[in-house]
Design a protein around this nucleic acid. Sequence first.
DNA 1: CGCGCAGTTGAAAGTTTTCAAATGCAGTGG
DNA 2: CCACTGCATTTGAAAACTTTCAACTGCGCG
Lengths: 258, 258
Amino acid sequence: MSEITITNANSTHKTLGSTCHLCSLSNLCLPIAVNNTEIERLEDVIKQGKVLDRGDHIFQEHSPFRSCFAVRSGSFKTYIVTEDGEEQVTGFYLPGEIIGMDSTNTEAYSCSAKALEKSSVCEIPFEQFEDLATKIPTLQHHFFQLMSREIRDSRQLSMLLSKNTAEERIASLLLSLSERFKRRKLSPTHFRLPMPRNDIGNYLGLAVETVSRVFTRFQKTGIISVQGREVTLNDIEILKDMIKRSSSGCQSKEAKAN
Amino acid sequence: MSEITITNANSTHKTLGSTCHLCSLSNLCLPIAVNNTEIERLEDVIKQGKVLDRGDHIFQEHSPFRSCFAVRSGSFKTYIVTEDGEEQVTGFYLPGEIIGMDSTNTEAYSCSAKALEKSSVCEIPFEQFEDLATKIPTLQHHFFQLMSREIRDSRQLSMLLSKNTAEERIASLLLSLSERFKRRKLSPTHFRLPMPRNDIGNYLGLAVETVSRVFTRFQKTGIISVQGREVTLNDIEILKDMIKRSSSGCQSKEAKAN
DNA sequence: CGCGCAGTTGAAAGTTTTCAAATGCAGTGG
DNA sequence: CCACTGCATTTGAAAACTTTCAACTGCGCG
């Protein structure tokens, strides 16, 4: 099955036949079977290479929805501001993952998306993309797939929040990150947390202090090593055992290869 | 804008022009703009009138995914069984709502769906439906819409679970049910809970005892009246104020009229 | 009429939060 | 290059909320 991936604007290059690597994030973003004509259409639709600094927004809650965004580098958090002005983190997004699917076909974005560091994204203007999807069944299929995965991931998070202890939630997040790094061919056992403790706590429904204490506890028992945002998972099995009780891990938003 | 709705097998009738009421649940289920030819195609695809008793499953987790289901009467819960054998309720579904969208485009159902009482559903075989969607842009659009709503609803639940107290969670569920009854032209202030306390607690991440205590507390302060599963909301405003702190209420899975 | 499940209630135990305060780290300006 | 300021992280102790355990009540169904 051939694949297409969104690309770096500077390094676009096509190969003959049906395979075409447009981006360094092959397999992660929009891995779908299309022919060359369709690839060209996709290229027309997707705008590449928007760069953002730490703290910049890709889009703000309530602003008119136009596009989804594929993370190319860096990392993002999505969040909602509640009526009393509190921020609620709804997700973290790493390279190869797609932001904004919860706003698909709505007037406005249902959350804000902010860069956690210097990052870049590809823009997927949704209306055009949708048109294209009616013409390319595999594209439609793939997008249904991404969305249903997003639903399942979110369910997963709900379960985590409703039934699991602080330790289990953190173990779950660590494992989720681990898998997502692994998928990008990076070390699954040693990585840098893109987000502050603050956001972790917010996302997992825990006080910052609790997050900190759990990290400390994990460190003391030797399961992980932490220094600031650098984390080493010393015993993934133990972490996995911790969350066995619940059906599975934290959400992992990647576009899983078809 | 014309509408189509899935129907009772016995009372199928078409009206001329572009409006066609196939089911008593008009506006709730699949309200979309289509022409008559398209309506006929939809009718071919959707199987109507499957009846289930209390405790019956529409589908089981891990069984091969074929169809989504629109609730026609009664009510359902969806749930997952965790590795340690615990049940985790992931949602409640009332007439006009669609079950199974989280399994769209997957091999197997990602949860089980069980009738909470004598109920009936319409079956939407997904593969055929998907084909149809590529031919009817509004249908594709509508389904994207339903799915993105499902994502948002699930996010909402996560927020509820991560940041809200027991009282707020229950208030939120009550208001969600209230709105969903209202949408069906039923009383938004007096209704029968389709599910046992058990499932409420499970869904909201609370012990049954806590659910019971909160109901009692609400009753004592006069906000609601409860006798078993019969509930009367005496002061919706107070309930709304309770959950104001969080951005919004509980999930409401209805297909909102386009 | 009685069994069994659903719901309620009380008291103790556990987790997590909150409040307060100290320490570390990083970018800024002198 | 260093001190300074502000934010991030850590830690301790008390307070708050929810769960757990146990027991009791109520209701529906055979």
